[in-house]
Design a protein around this nucleic acid. Structure first.
Ligand SMILES: [Zn+2]
Ligand SMILES: [Zn+2]
Length: 447
DNA sequence: TCGATCGGACCCTCAAGATT
DNA sequence: ATCTTGAGGGTCCGATCGAA
């Protein structure tokens, strides 16, 4: 838990960049969460804000490595990837997502603000959105070490005014963009989806063609519904192809945010690798022959495709498993159609036999293993430094040894015996992140 | 020792909601 | 209309591991 703490609030208060982060612009900030629990940040050394480019190139993005604004970037030059060094595509932010009421705004009183910054924030602020405690927000002074509260308050105010200028510019830009978009869009914008309390306002987005407005024909149909119908269709023998696509990251993020409302994903999935055989087609694939029985995860009494399956599905050229998201969504919503057990009553390790399979079949792989976009015959050597062609990107988690690896990695970080709730969030967050990577790969494979 | 991998901390942007 | 909040979606650090 301590490992999950983040100096988020402190960073936000000190943040004066208001947008661009240039080296000169870097202010000294409290260190990363490195400090011990409970240790006041007031003595902590300052650190520069981490700079990041606006848009990493596709190669750096996929390698999760630092990029720069040059094209080709330094890293691509180093690895002789000059040809493929192009900006990665960015998804447009979704619209129409209801957010619920904000916390009450404070009066523009410096004293109030100072008090606000000195005080432990309201409970909702004391935790991150995933329920993790935020470093520096639990009573410790979250301001800069030497700065008196008033000074910090003033800094915050001045920061806001300085930010304001850039914000108005941003707005103009944004409006221009909107106008442009409107020109492209044929239809009128749909009304926002409003779901009941505790519901998950997940909107459908095409992970592959997300940027193409024309593809959002069903964009405001709650993803929950789409996923479930997709899962149903798949359960009836349809393949996933042609199914409504899904939102990998945001959907899951939203899902785990709603976990408070009901049932939980309360087990580290890695503890539940059942001995379930992979689909025959998958086994036949030369690059994806699990050395051990294909691991299958469970949530309570339902089975989930393993985390690895996202990789497999991706590597095999299919979108991430809709069914898994659908099931997760069910869990988050507390739907019991999947024979969910009551919350918190889930055993750490399942001992009873698997129930009727609720999880629909995984998508069939294409006949041909899709060549990695960056691996060409002539420069395999170079490329393999980034993406070994003989295995998938996340191969560390796909073999039998990887299975124990998974156990170690995942079980250690969210042991259900300690804090099931947080653990479940952590798991979904991992899924979300994994899907983010999957998404990145999918996009570049398509382009 | 080095490069690849990937979890998650950190960051920025901007739509939703609140306030004027 | 303007301001503020905070979530979406991004970057990339650093721990870890396997290979050379
Ligand atoms: Zn780059
Ligand atoms: Zn590059």
């Amino acid at each position: 838990m301590a490992s999950a703490s983040r100096p988020h609030s402190a960073a936000e208060i000190i943040d004066t960049s208001g947008g661009q982060t240039s080296p000169q612009d870097q202010r000294l900030r409290p260190p990363y969460s490195g400090g011990e629990e409970g240790q006041s940040s007031s003595d902590a050394p300052l650190r520069p804000k981490r700079a990041q480019v606006k848009n990493a190139c596709v190669n750096c993005q996929r390698a999760c490595k630092k990029c720069d604004s040059g094209r080709p970037c330094q890293r691509c030059i180093k690895y002789n990837l000059v040809d493929s060094c192009v900006d990665s595509k960015r998804k447009p932010r979704k619209k129409g997502i209801k957010r619920g009421p904000y916390k009450k705004r404070k009066k523009n009183n410096p004293e109030d603000e100072a008090a606000l910054h000195n005080q432990p924030p309201e409970t909702s602020l004391g935790e991150s959105s995933i329920g993790m405690p935020l470093a520096g927000s639990s009573g410790a002074n979250v301001t800069t070490p030497q700065a008196p509260a008033a000074a910090v308050a003033a800094a915050a105010v001045s920061r806001r005014s300085s930010v304001r200028a850039t914000r108005t510019e941003q707005k103009k830009r944004q409006q221009r963009r909107l106008q442009q978009q409107k020109g492209n869009e044929e239809r009128a914008p749909k009304p926002p989806v409003v779901l009941g309390p505790g519901a998950i306002p997940i909107l459908h987005t095409d992970p592959v063609h997300d940027d193409e407005v024309s593809d959002e024909s069903s964009s405001d149909v709650p993803l929950v519904i789409q996923q479930r119908s997709a899962a149903q269709a798949m359960a009836h023998g349809h393949t996933q192809y042609g199914m409504p696509p899904e939102t990998p990251t945001s959907g899951l993020t939203m899902a785990f945010r709603s976990l408070d409302t009901g049932h939980r994903v309360s087990e580290p999935l890695s503890q539940h690798h059942g001995a379930i055989s992979p689909p025959a087609a998958r086994l036949s694939h030369p690059h994806h022959q699990p050395a051990a029985p294909y691991p299958q995860s469970t949530i309570g009494s339902i089975r989930l495709p393993p985390i690895e399956s996202f990789d497999h599905a991706q590597a095999l050229g299919s979108p991430p498993s809709t069914s898994s998201l659908a099931i997760l969504t069910d869990v988050a919503l507390g739907h019991t159609s999947s024979s969910l057990p009551p919350p918190l009553s889930v055993p750490a390790v399942r001992t009873h036999p698997a129930p009727q399979v609720m999880h629909p079949p995984l998508p069939q792989p294409p006949a041909q293993y899709p060549q990695h976009p960056h691996v060409s015959a002539e420069d395999t050597n170079q490329q393999s430094q980034l993406y070994p062609p003989s295995d998938d990107h996340h191969s560390r988690h796909t073999t039998s040894t990887a299975e124990s690896d998974v156990s170690t990695n995942y079980a250690s970080s969210f042991d259900s015996r300690q804090s099931p709730d947080i653990n479940s969030r952590a798991y979904i967050r991992r899924l979300s992140h994994r899907l983010h990577h999957t998404h990145i790969e999918q996009e570049s494979a398509d382009s």
